[in-house]
Design a protein around this nucleic acid. Structure first.
Lengths: 123, 123
DNA sequence: CGCGAGGTACGATGCAAGTCGTACTTGACG
DNA sequence: CGTCAAGTACGACTTGCATCGTACCTCGCG
C-alpha cells in the first residue's frame, strides 16, 4: 500500500434529502440498484457498471454518491474501489436498500444472473 | 357536488425515478413526510402544510406530487383536497412511506404531538 | 522509460426545475 | 352582487446540475 490508499467518507452524516437527490439521477440510481441487489457487497470498479457516459461524468456521479455517504471509495492511484456502505445506510434508512434491490429485480434482472424473457413490462 | 369534483391521478404508474425526483425537493419531501407519518390518512388542504413559498409555487409542487402518483387531489373549485395514496405507494414501494414517517419523527416531531427538546442535532 | 488506461481538475454549455409576478377563475360569505 | 381567499395559467428569471472538451496525474506493463 502507499499513502494514496485513501478510504473516503466513512463517517458522513446521511441526509435523506441528499440521498433522494442522489437517487434522482438515472445513472446513480442504476449503480445503487446494482449494489443493493448484490448482498455479497463486493468492492467493484467504476468501469464495472455499464454507464453510457464519459469518464468525467462518471467521476462526477461517483463523487456525488460518495459525498452523500452511500458508497465508499478506495483510491489505488490509477484505479478506484467502490463499495456500498450497507450497514450505515441500512441503519439510517431501513428499507431503502431493499427498495432499490427490489427495483433492480423488477427491472428485468434476476438475482442469480439469468434473464427472464418476460422481463421488460410496459412502463 | 358539481362536475368540478375531479379526482385526479388514481391510476398513475408509479416510477421510482420520478418518485425520487419528487422527493428530492425539500418542500415536497416535507409534505410527504407529514402525510406518511399520519396513519389516519385524512384529506388535507394545501394550506394546512406550512410551506414558506408563494401559492403559485405551492400549486406547482402539489401538481408534481400528483403527477408522479404519490397523492390524490379532489378539486372542489376554490378548494382542493390532498390525500396520500398509501395503498398504491405501499404496494409498489414497500418501506418508502415508513422511511418518510421515520424521518418525520427524527426531524423533531413526535407521533402524539409533543416535541422533544433534544431534537436538533448538529448539522 | 514511454505508452496506455483509469481517474481527476477546471471550465463551458445546455437543459430542467424552483420561484415568483401578473392576471384570471371559482366558490363561500354577507 | 361585491369581496375575499384559494387555486390556476402563463411567462420570466435564476439556479442547479448533468454533460463533455481539454489538460494533467497515476500506475502497470513491456
Amino acid at each position: 500500500m502507499t499513502a494514496q490508499d485513501t478510504l473516503v467518507a466513512t463517517d458522513v452524516q446521511l441526509d435523506l434529502g441528499a440521498v433522494f437527490r442522489a437517487l434522482a439521477d438515472e445513472h446513480r440510481r442504476a449503480v445503487m440498484m446494482e449494489l443493493a441487489a448484490d448482498r455479497s457487497d463486493p468492492e467493484r470498479t467504476c468501469t464495472s457498471f455499464d454507464l453510457p457516459i464519459s469518464k468525467q461524468t462518471r467521476t462526477h456521479h461517483f463523487r456525488t454518491l460518495r459525498d452523500v455517504g452511500l458508497v465508499e471509495e478506495v483510491n489505488y492511484g490509477n484505479r478506484k474501489g467502490i463499495s456500498l456502505r450497507r450497514a450505515a445506510v441500512d441503519a439510517r434508512f431501513p428499507g431503502l436498500l431493499d427498495l432499490l434491490a427490489a427495483e433492480y429485480e423488477r427491472d428485468g434482472h434476476e438475482r442469480d444472473g439469468h434473464e427472464r424473457d418476460g422481463g421488460v413490462r410496459a412502463d
